[in-house]
């Protein structure tokens, strides 16, 4: 715990490297959350994920106060972790089903025929999101939090510092664009 306390101290002094280190320390936890999310998909209420992330966040703020931006950053980071974990899991599964090829998988390699729709969708969204990040960063952020993070609109609004209405519009657009990209 002392390592974290030290990190927190540096964080409060505005050390961004410390922040990254701090958040990295949260990784195992977030990893666990992501796996849970992966298994349950959209079946569980959105409440679960955000509260799990919040809880994880709380562990680290017990010792001191993080500023509002830090909380936001943490939540944004968490959704990023979720995304990477989920995507990795999906790739693993595909690899396993195919007998563990060891080849890096992207949809652009021609393995579509053996991959289930759902898994293909996840990978597809992931790749499209990469592109969207370059075109419309905020739309991509919202989409990542919603789709991979499973955050509620309110949580996203809070994290990004925008209104819920904006979140709704952003998500609406992002969805349509991503869907178009997956055709």
């Amino acid at each position: 715990m002392t390592q974290l306390t030290e990190l927190l101290g540096r964080l409060q002094a505005g050390d961004t490297e410390a922040r990254d280190a701090l958040f990295a320390a949260a990784y195992p936890e977030l990893h666990r959350l992501a796996r849970a999310r992966l298994r349950d998909g959209g079946r569980n209420t959105l409440l679960d994920t955000t509260c799990l992330v919040h809880e994880s966040y709380l562990r680290f703020v017990r010792a001191g106060e993080l500023r509002a931006e830090d909380r936001r950053a943490f939540f944004a980071y968490a959704s990023q972790v979720m995304r990477s974990v989920i995507v990795n899991s999906v790739r693993e599964r595909i690899a396993q089903k195919r007998g563990g090829d060891g080849q890096p998988l992207t949809l652009s390699t021609n393995i579509v025929a053996n991959v289930a729709d759902d898994e293909a969708t996840v990978l597809g969204v992931h790749e499209a999101l990469d592109a969207l990040e370059q075109a419309e960063p905020r739309l991509a952020q919202v989409a990542q939090m919603r789709y991979f993070g499973g955050y509620s609109e309110q949580e996203i609004a809070e994290t990004l510092g925008i209104t819920e209405r904006t979140v709704q519009r952003d998500w609406e657009k992002a969805r349509l664009i991503l869907a178009a990209a997956l055709r």
């Binding site: 992966l38 998909g41 959209g42 759902d118 991979f148 499973g150 969805r175 991503l178 997956l182």
Partner: peptide, 9 residues
């Protein structure tokens, strides 16, 4: 495309 599909429990 609303949320993550359930990928097997």
């Amino acid at each position: 495309l609303t949320t993550l599909p359930k990928l097997g429990a």
